[in-house]
Computed example of a mutant assay.
Amino acid sequence: MESSITNYRSNALRDPIILSVLDQMNARRKRPDSNMFQGSVAPDPELFADYGFSIHPEQGDLIYTLCRAMKATHVVDFATSVGMSALYFAAAMRDNGGGQVVGAELVSAKADTAYRNLTAAGLDAYVDIRIGDARETLKDLGKPVDFALIDGWPLAKGPTLARQVIEIIAPQLRVGGYVLNDNAESDFLEYIRDPANGFISVTLPIKRGTELAVKIS
Rank of each mutant, 00 (worst) to 15 (best):
G103F: 06
G52F: 01
K139T: 13
Q38V: 07
I55G: 01
E2M: 14
I192R: 07
K143E: 10
T119Q: 14
G83P: 01
A196H: 11
N7P: 09
E2L: 15
H56T: 14
A196M: 09
H74V: 05
V101S: 11
K139R: 15
E211S: 10
A120R: 06
I169Q: 00
S108N: 13
G176Q: 04
F89Y: 09
M93Q: 11
D61W: 01
F89P: 02
A69N: 08
K30W: 03
E2N: 14
K71W: 03
H56L: 12
E2A: 15
R29Y: 11
D182C: 03
F37I: 12
Q24K: 15
D140L: 07
Y51G: 00
K110Y: 04
D23S: 15
S186V: 15
L62D: 00
D95P: 01
K30P: 03
L22D: 09
K143A: 11
G177M: 02
G103R: 04
F37S: 13
P195C: 09
L189C: 12
F89V: 03
F53R: 03
R135W: 04
T65G: 04
D187R: 12
L118V: 05
S20T: 12
S4D: 15
P154D: 01
E167I: 01
A27N: 11
A125Y: 06
V21P: 04
E211R: 08
K71Q: 10
A125L: 07
V41Q: 13
A90N: 00
F48Y: 04
V214Q: 12
A90R: 04
D33C: 03
V41P: 04
V107R: 04
H74G: 02
A72Q: 00
Q100T: 15
L62S: 00
A170M: 02
L204F: 04
D44V: 05
S217E: 14
R174L: 06
G122F: 03
N96E: 06
S54H: 11
Y178I: 08
L22N: 10
G103P: 07
A109V: 11
L189N: 13
Q59G: 11
N183T: 12
V127F: 01
Y8W: 15
G198Y: 02
A92Y: 03
I192H: 05
Y8G: 10
R31P: 06
I150D: 09
